[in-house]
Amino acid sequence: MTAVSQASNQLQQASAAALDTQSSEFLVFSLGDEEYAVDILKVQEIRGYENVTRIANAPDFIKGVTNLRGVIVPIVDLRIKFHLDKVEYGGQTVVIVVNVAERVVGIVVDGVSDVMTLSPDQIKPAPEFGVALSSDYLSGLGSLDDRMLVLVDIDKLLTSEEMALVDRTAK
């Protein structure tokens, strides 16, 4: 297949995806060996993990705050929140900066792999279980060939009481 036809093929796929309003795009990231995904429209940017100022007396999964071009942004480590065994900070560790509930929050993940388009029939309802991650915070499970993506409802998760990111009394 020539490069040109490949490109046009991709273009067709893209326009097909655009036409199909039911399907949506997700940013896939990894926590340990697991693959998670968030609605790409919530994502503002992806940056490296650096220069985080610790906040005293905060839950351990709140790593602190960082300076994002003059804006103070809290950083949450989802690996600690989801009780993953290995929490390391290295070159691959990235922060996904998301916009939820008119706030900007950074979430630390082990890596970002790709952007996927999922059609409604590829999204299965989340089973009723989960101790570390209540199914309330999931918008479903995405199945893609033999991969399973945990679709996180980032809005619900980050504004939930247990994340302690939002001051309830102030509202």
Partner: peptide, 12 residues
């Protein structure tokens, strides 16, 4: 810079 814009009130 306000901490509460994106986070919450921190004691102290």
């Amino acid at each position: 810079k306000n901490l509460e814009t994106n986070y919450r009130k921190v004691p102290g």
